Amino acid sequence: MTKIFAHRGSAGTHPENTMIAFYEAERVGADGIELDVQLSKDGQIVVIHDETIDRTTDGTGWVKDFTYRELQQFNAVYKFADQYDVCRIPLLEEVLAWICSTTLLLNIELKNSLIAYETLEQKVIDMIRHYGLEDRIILSSFNHNSMALCRSLAPNIETALLYMESLYDPWKYVRVMRADGLHPYHRTVTEPFVRQARHYQIAIRPFTINQEPLMEKMFQYGVDAIFTDYPRNAKNIRENKKTP
């Protein structure tokens, strides 16, 4: 059965990459959560998508230029200010400590394509090991060099390659990268592609699947998982697709 990962939490209905978005994803029955990590000025692993805080908080500037304590001054309520009072940028450790008490899977996307956070891979892996969550984690990034490093640092933690455009001979590329999965932009995903992936035992998890007809198509294709901002809608559609 295709799994449902709540993209940045339940980002369509709650402030993205905040604890309340993650709590909501669990409440509505998502199979997993996807979030993004970067490093603060003082080396803390913070959960935020953009390299700047401009879009999702009431502040402005680069994540890397603030200490974690300084980042806590900003309200990450984003476009949901009329529904929620204050939401803070969480630490990855906060998420991991909570997720231990759930059955959720967790996809951690390393946001290190624009800024080379030199110690990000090791710090994230150390934190995962501290909480004993190796078998419930997928590490992903558009920075494939970073995924190769993660594979060498932690062979027992699953890695997946994010990409926007179709890859030439993706099955050979995945073998060379020693990755476990591909996370493609949904427009590059076809039914024959998914069949091939199954043959090569490569997990396919397309992003970001928000429209209901697209959800139906991906469930029909039998992809391993989808990333969606609307996990509740996706779960309803998946359950309605079950044959009697």
Rank of each mutant, 00 (worst) to 15 (best):
P155H: 12
A197T: 10
S140F: 02
F5E: 05
V223W: 04
F193P: 10
F193G: 04
F74H: 05
M215C: 08
K3N: 05
A25I: 00
Y173P: 00
K41G: 09
Q72R: 15
K41S: 10
Q44N: 11
Q38N: 05
R69S: 15
R232S: 14
H144N: 03
M218W: 05
I202P: 02
S141C: 06
S10A: 15
T188W: 08
F142W: 11
Q72G: 13
E212T: 13
L153Y: 04
R232C: 12
M215L: 13
Q201H: 15
H199V: 14
E109L: 03
E239A: 03
T208A: 06
R232D: 15
K3Y: 11
M164E: 15
A81F: 10
V223R: 07
R151Q: 13
Y185T: 02
A21F: 00
G181T: 03
S152H: 13
E34Y: 03
V189K: 02
L161C: 10
Y230F: 15
T2V: 13
R232E: 15
N112C: 14
I202W: 02
F74L: 11
R55W: 04
R151Y: 09
E165R: 14
N145C: 11
E51A: 01
T67A: 06
A234I: 09
Q38I: 08
F66W: 02
T103E: 13
D31F: 00
F66S: 04
T52V: 08
E216K: 14
T67R: 06
T159E: 01
N143L: 08
L92A: 03
R232P: 00
G59P: 08
H183Q: 04
P213V: 06
I99S: 12
L71E: 02
I108P: 00
V223I: 08
F207D: 00
D31E: 11
R88L: 13
V28P: 02
V223Q: 01
D54A: 04
S146I: 09
P155I: 10
S166A: 15
Q201S: 14
P90A: 12
L104T: 03
A21K: 01
E134W: 07
L35Y: 05
A25T: 00
